[in-house]
Design a protein around this nucleic acid. Structure first.
Lengths: 223, 223
DNA sequence: TTGAAAAATGGACAATCGTCCATATTAATC
DNA sequence: GATTAATATGGACGATTGTCCATTTTTCAA
């Protein structure tokens, strides 16, 4: 069993990271000060220096944590999917637009960090690796889809399909960022599947764009 | 003729706004301080308070200026386009991905502001109106395209096409933000036109995705 | 129970933030 | 050219920023 020592240590580290993410989501990066962070975490001023060596390192850790959260959710979903490329792509899209992954908090955090990515090298790096991982997951799935079709320039088609799907998902996230209240997950999925069905009529149809459960009305105000 | 008084006044106002945009593009919002701004503008500290009443108002004016720049370029392009919906959409896409509109500076500025939009009410408002204007331009064009086809649920199709096109453009901008060096304008256009050709085969083809001139190699380092 | 090491506290500190104003400079009018 | 009002200057100001450390508290081992 891990001692109480290490247990508290890890608990406080996490409290600081969560405090940063909460603050970024609610107040934005520019208002996420050390005072704001330690107040939310309910800890003392010196803890940031003790555990992370400084505010910048803490923010970097928060970015990494957020990124791992995203992939944790996505890869968990992916394990429940089938082995075919089509099933995996459908699951990625469904997951990326699900309430667990795409919500007010995650969107606020993600775009806040990305807006500063250009200047914070560490943030940019994770922003990159996150996108690269998603890209390779989708590209891999499309490659296996295209292989079944046996068309000539298979690699190029898979690349275009990956690029288009990622761009559409990006666009939908932006949609959600700007209008979280009037965003329609079903509509977002329908449009992406229209694109897929047009490119691969043998594998995709609009029927894939139906969410298993949709009940977002009254209980949905996470922020 | 306008007096030298007003002429200088306007010139200094503009210098401050440009200084903000330059700083945001190069250093990010969090490092865009009053000291940074007045140093870039070559003016004295008090000018911000004199002309804008405070830093926040200046930043808001900069956002507005940037937004008007974007539409100025886009609407100029649109005047050279034909009257048909198809031509207007092609021109909007071409313009939105052109070097004059989509470049390192504009992308840095746009995403930096958007990352803070959630917290700055004034910024959010302009982010909204900018998107709304573009949306209505595209929707209008698609509506006239769909009308020619005479399909039953014309309004819904035009709405989906607009939504998809906007999402794709958004995604391409994000692509450029994350990888300005390896971004390929031709590829971006090709993917969007693949989407359009699939939805409206009678009006769009991949032939629309060819840029008039492409020479971006050595001379392209605007930032 | 005692000693030592790890963890946590909270205030001191210099640096920087944005605002504002007394002063100096400039341009337009008489 | 003198007067007046608009424009511009740059430093003072209090507030807040992030860092760091002397001190206290807690945990584990002897």
């Amino acid at each position: 069993m891990t001692g109480k020592r290490e247990q508290n240590r890890e608990q406080n580290r996490l409290a600081l990271i969560e405090a940063v993410l909460d603050s970024v989501a609610e107040k934005g990066i520019s208002e996420t000060s050390v005072s704001e962070i330690i107040q939310r975490a309910g800890l003392s001023r010196g803890m940031i220096h003790l555990h992370f060596g400084g505010k910048d390192n803490l923010v970097q850790a928060a970015v990494q944590h957020s990124s791992e959260d995203y992939y944790g959710g996505l890869e968990n979903l992916l394990q429940t999917a089938g082995d075919s490329g089509q099933e995996r792509i459908e699951m990625i899209i469904r997951g990326d637009l699900s309430k667990e992954v795409l919500n007010r908090r995650s969107v606020s955090i993600w775009y806040a960090f990305r807006g500063e990515a250009r200047n914070r090298a560490a943030v940019a790096e994770f922003s990159d690796t996150r996108d690269d991982r998603l890209r390779s997951m989708i590209l891999h799935a499309f490659t296996s889809v295209v292989r079944e079709d046996g068309c000539p320039d298979a690699a190029a088609v898979a690349r275009d399909a990956t690029h288009g799907t990622l761009a559409l998902l990006e666009g939908m996230w932006t949609d959600y960022l700007l209008h979280p209240d009037r965003f329609d997950r079903e509509e977002a999925m329908r449009i992406i599947f229209r694109f897929l069905a047009a490119m691969f009529p043998a594998h995709f149809s609009l029927a894939g764009a139906i969410l298993p459960e949709e009940a977002e009305g009254a209980a949905a105000r996470p922020l």
